[in-house]
Amino acid sequence: MQTVRKENTLGRPAAWLKEFLQYMRKEYMLYLMILPGVLYIVIFKYLPMYGITIAFRDYKVSSSLFNAPWVGFDNFVNLFSRSAFIRALTNNIFISIYKLIFGFPFPIILSLLINEVRNSKVKKFVQTSVILPDFVSWIVIYGLMYAIFSPSSGAIKGLAEMLGHKGKIPNVLTQKETFKSVIVISHIWKSAGMGTIVYLAAISGIDQDLYEAAAIDGAGRWQQMWHVTLASLRSTIIVLLFFRVGQMMYAGFDQIFAISNDLVMSTADIIDTYVYRLGLEQRKFSIATAAGLFQSAIGMALVLITNYIARKVDPDSAIM
């Protein structure tokens, strides 16, 4: 925030007010402009937030939300006392970290590569193709994964037999040891295309003069990619990284719900799938809300930490 000259504020309120009125006279249009957005956020996002208190109450749909008895942190204690939740939390952390490390950079690399395609028709074709998996639900993707990996009728088996392999084919969908890789790779494959859209939009906003200047300085293709394209994407990458970090604890319910099975559950179960099972069988709104609040709070903490580091390294990149 622009600093208002502090030394004057206490002693001479009139001057402070005068300055403020002056500012408002000049910039009132900006406030008029942002008013609808702020109203929207307040009404549709902040008003329902009293729902978060469900996490601290013993809530049932049959009682009014405001009458439900307060139970303090009981719901959180309940959650953390369950060994199955601890298992889900542990898996959740690992899957989230893998998805962040391997999944976050991939759309950036992909957009840089797409941007290197010279033929504009081919370029458009590639772009359209890579977003396609995003339209197909995980249930359907799983159907295809099953068709590929099935040990009795899958494509892998057919391929292996063609190459002369006899005997059993291990089913990667039931191997505990490697299932986290299946989760991460299929996640990257499905979401990378959509992830390129923001980057490509940012790339197309880059001033072409910069490339010419770099070329004149003797920068080759990869150097241009590094020094011009990637450098220009920096602020976009950072903003998206903050968003991603904030959602860290949401490790992909739809995906894991669709592709996991009981043989790999011990390594695939995450908070959301666990809470889903709780809710399904036990109608635990309060516990589900508590779990959600926990996930969000961790996200918030991670954002603050990231922001702190960002500010230390490079003050411009911090968002707060």
Binding site: A84, D262, L263
Partner: peptide
Amino acid sequence: RLEYGADMDQLINEMYVEMLA
């Protein structure tokens, strides 16, 4: 059951498939 049902069921499911395989 309301309290531990989901956890207990999941354990039995996992035990069953592990024994089967």
